[in-house]
């Protein structure tokens, strides 16, 4: 026979597990924030994506508005194509918006920074599947040092 005490203690065990799942889900993995919500995709071609990875953040002024969906190489002109999933809440970026690959801190992760452009005249908004024309590549330290040495020689 299952005694009352046993049932209560097993119940507490189950409740403790649910608490652990909630802690891991909401506080650690932050499942509640990003999973829901409709999204749309934008694409951008870069010369060099540096250390950008899938699932890297897409930020506007430091606010996360989406994630990097996929990274592939265009087979015609051999430039990387980055597909961004952006939250439907932020669907009014003008076509003059520029995009850059930035680094958080000196050694931190790389992320995609969107810089919304001005709205004037008949400039429309970016819609699902559009390419962002104005892109700035990732800063590669080796290139930077090379440029520095080159400009030094010219002096």
């Amino acid at each position: 026979m299952t005694s009352r005490k046993t049932e209560i203690l097993v119940g507490l065990f189950v409740i403790l597990t649910v608490g652990a799942i909630l802690l891991l889900g909401l506080k650690v993995a932050n499942q509640g924030m990003q999973a829901r919500g409709e999204t749309y995709t934008l694409k951008a071609k870069f010369d060099n994506i540096g250390g950008l990875k899938e699932r890297s953040a897409v930020k506007v002024g430091g606010v996360i508005v989406g994630r990097v969906e996929s990274i592939s190489l265009d087979s015609d002109d051999f430039t990387p194509v980055v597909v961004l999933t952006i939250n439907k809440n932020y669907d009014s970026f003008p076509e003059t918006t520029s995009v850059a690959i930035l680094t958080s801190g000196l050694l931190g992760e790389q992320y995609v920074g969107l810089q919304p452009g001005f709205k004037f005249g008949d400039i429309g908004n970016l819609t699902d599947g559009d390419f962002i024309e104005d892109t700035k590549s990732a800063l590669v330290l080796e290139d930077l040092i090379g440029q520095f040495l080159f400009s030094k020689n010219n002096d």
């Binding site: 597990t17 652990a20 891991l24 650690v28």
Partner: peptide
């Protein structure tokens, strides 16, 4: 269940 509790703790 125990593993989840272990990680959370």
């Amino acid at each position: 269940m125990l593993a989840l509790i272990f990680s959370a703790v």
